[in-house]
């Protein structure tokens, strides 16, 4: 408190030092509360997208007859949950494997290594990644290269002769099967 007095030498208007101490504390407290009040929504707005846990939605990939049995074809679709602001990036693709003997496997185009788009080769029945050379067999299992696992697979179902997959986010190591 003695410093406080020293500062107002000559110009003090006679307020008591103790009053000033209280005022300072109130000020600090108010600023503190205000800062917290302000930073919670601000920081919240920044990190909120990390906590979005919307379930995936079913996307129609077309009639099952579009996918010849025994072959693997690229299906293009618009990501559910995307908006016009996303422009072309709302377009997405998946590899649809129509298994001989029935049934579908739908793989993400994203390599399980670092997410680059893998390409299907019908002749050797392999998926190859252009970035670091990951290779997968036709059932999505890892064949060679750096990927730590096989291709990400979408949940899929067939209803009324149409193929649906559950999609809505960028496939990644921590959410896909």
């Amino acid at each position: 408190m003695s410093e406080g007095c020293a500062q107002c030498q000559g110009g003090c208007d006679g307020e008591k030092p103790s009053r000033r101490g209280v005022m300072f504390k109130i000020g600090a407290g108010l600023m503190g509360v205000g800062t917290v009040l302000a930073s919670v929504p601000l920081a919240g707005a920044l990190v909120a997208p990390g906590f979005v846990r919307d379930g995936d939605t079913w996307v129609d990939l077309g009639a099952t007859s579009d996918y010849p049995e025994g072959e693997t074809r690229l299906a293009k679709f618009t990501l559910p949950g995307s908006n016009p602001n996303d422009g072309e990036t709302s377009r997405t693709a998946a590899w649809v494997r129509s298994m001989s003997g029935g049934g579908f496997q739908v793989f993400a185009v994203n390599c399980a290594h670092l997410g680059c788009p893998v390409k299907w080769f019908q002749q050797s029945r392999l998926f190859m990644c252009p970035c670091h050379g990951g290779v997968y067999y036709e059932d999505g299992s890892r064949a060679s290269g750096p990927p730590p696992r096989g291709l990400f697979e979408y949940q899929s179902k067939v209803e009324n002769g149409r193929l649906f997959i559950a999609a809505g986010r960028l496939p990644g190591l921590q959410e896909s099967t």
């Binding site: 010849p68 072959e71 693997t72 074809r73 019908q122 002749q123």
Partner: peptide, 10 residues
């Protein structure tokens, strides 16, 4: 001789 047309998966 591979099928090369996009409509045939090429």
């Amino acid at each position: 001789m591979p099928a090369l047309a996009q409509s045939k998966g090429g």
